[in-house]
Write a protein that binds this DNA or RNA. Sequence first.
DNA 1: ATGTATGCAAAACATTTGCACCTGG
DNA 2: CCAGGTGCAAATGTTTTGCATACAT
Lengths: 136, 136
Amino acid sequence: MERQDLRDAGLKVTSPRLKVLGILEKSEERHLSAEGIYRLLLESGEELGLATVYRVLTQFEQAGLVSRHNFEGGTAVFELTDKAHHDHMVCLETGAVVEFCDERIEQIQRDIADRYGYTLEDHSLVLYVKPKRKPS
Amino acid sequence: MERQDLRDAGLKVTSPRLKVLGILEKSEERHLSAEGIYRLLLESGEELGLATVYRVLTQFEQAGLVSRHNFEGGTAVFELTDKAHHDHMVCLETGAVVEFCDERIEQIQRDIADRYGYTLEDHSLVLYVKPKRKPS
DNA sequence: ATGTATGCAAAACATTTGCACCTGG
DNA sequence: CCAGGTGCAAATGTTTTGCATACAT
């Protein structure tokens, strides 16, 4: 029950927070912008302010409930952090987002940070791709 | 001689363009924001508009002379594209930027895109790290 | 009750653009 | 000369913030 997730994060269980969580869970598009979440909610008849969506998303991010990504194009997108770690592939033609995970890359990243005297805290890997052309 | 790089890109050799190129070449900090480049130029007594810096950087990017990166924090940074391909490691404590390249990762990325039916066009990999704690 | 959350409008940023004026080739 | 470049100010798009009101506990 998500209400508990909110309490665990020290956040009151409020209507806007439940609505935003709800959209992130139910929408078929896993990766949504603040504006996108806002519009989906308005369209389904819910009332709330865009500023609140931003505030709620920022709090969720700090609580680890959602992850924020800055793909190309100025607008951040958010997704639930309920799945295992993964990276993203963005199709430059369709905008489709594919999630993938490769343990080899994860390991190499840790090695590289270590080699330079650092500890890996986080990373961002995005592949920008185009559909493979079928041989005609 | 950089003037030729500009001509090759179909760009007139103008004073603002030479100034921006000059800063990118001479500054000890390889990764600069538009605002940063602008301020460095003003400080060294050069006159030019911030809007021009943005325009020039965008043109340079399209010409392949500079690369734009979106590290965390809303502000894009630019660097000369005169070196071989590399990725970046950003220290969360000092802001230091370390460049690295790992051919294994490059290869795995191509494989992954291919496995999903795509061709890799570009990618963005940034490691966020902290200095390793010395054992006390 | 009371400390938080919210909504709205305004502010803050980074970046882009319209337009009249300049300039390189 | 003239297409293209520049400066300035205004516009844009995204995200944040101040403040008065409303709500969860």
